[in-house]
């Protein structure tokens, strides 16, 4: 480690405009989009899953795709069994790209097809992707999907395709975008109106559909936003926290009245 006295021997950059930082959430003037998922409200109903398929032109998950484990679901509901009969329980957890502040998928891409945008989103540039799948290997949440086949929608099913979202071709990786096209549209509209984007104005398709409002989306840079407020809940946690990925998604624990610790934590 260099000491203060030998800095002269190090290549010192004078007066850099922006200094490199290891802060996963560097201060920016813009937005930092994030989500809160309340496991106590998520019923596992799958409405968000189909809403995402519809909005984002996901290829049909035919039976063989599921068997081969190559079905694409940008958001999926993981189900966990707890205990044995007669005290067994089922638990649900929606899992999607966590839009990590320290995203392991970004550093491994040889062609910068995936990067962090100024709004805090982990972005996939489809026409840059060469399909190494390094990112899918590196992602600890298994939320990146490779296109092994050309997608097909028997006519006239293709009429449903959303013109705002690129259809992905064979050979590239895709994943949740936080519905970036909806974010951009709302930002443009707010710009045109000469006003800031209001809290709750941007709703990704999953958030829009969720009937129990288990999903909340917003700007984490806005301390008054609902998502900021909820992310400070006593029930808050992030997925695989020890990995240090700094996700933009905060989960709220399920409340289990039969569980004493959580009971206390919940404040009852």
């Amino acid at each position: 480690m260099a000491s203060a006295t030998d800095t002269a021997e190090l290549p010192v950059v004078a007066a850099a405009a922006t200094l490199p930082t290891d802060d996963p959430h560097p201060e920016t003037d813009g937005h930092r989009w994030g989500m809160v998922i309340d496991a106590d409200k998520c019923t596992g109903c799958q409405a968000c899953v189909v809403a995402c398929q519809s909005e984002n032109n996901l290829a049909l998950n035919e039976e063989n795709r599921v068997i081969e484990r190559r079905a694409k679901t940008w958001i999926r509901i993981e189900r966990y069994w707890e205990g044995e009969w007669p005290n067994a329980k089922a638990r649900f957890l929606p899992v999607l790209c966590q839009h990590c502040g320290n995203a392991p998928c970004e550093t491994v891409c040889p062609v910068w097809a995936t990067y962090h945008n100024p709004d805090g989103l982990n972005v996939q540039v489809y026409n840059r992707c060469i399909g190494t799948r390094f990112c899918a290997n590196a992602c600890p949440y298994s939320v990146r999907y490779f296109n092994f086949w050309e997608p097909e929608w028997p006519s006239p099913m293709d009429r449903q395709l959303n013109p705002d979202v690129t259809v992905r071709t064979k050979g590239i990786v895709e994943k949740c975008t936080f519905c970036i096209h909806r974010i951009n549209r709302t930002k443009r509209q707010a710009d045109r109106d000469g006003r800031p984007v209001a809290d709750g104005e941007v709703e990704p398709a999953c958030v829009q559909a969720c009937p129990t409002t288990a999903l909340v989306f917003g700007d984490l840079n806005d301390s008054d936003s609902k998502v900021s407020e909820l992310s400070h809940s006593k029930r808050a946690f992030t997925l695989l926290e020890p990995l240090g990925t700094a996700p933009a998604i905060t989960y709220l624990k399920k409340v289990d009245p039969s569980h004493v610790d959580e009971h206390e934590e919940h404040g009852h």
């Binding site: 109903c45 899953v49 028997p154 293709d158 449903q160 559909a209 009937p211």
Partner: peptide
Amino acid sequence: KTNVRGQAGVQSLYNP
């Protein structure tokens, strides 16, 4: 709000 079935309305519309 909707559920899975409601979301699928556009797909049943264009089912070949």
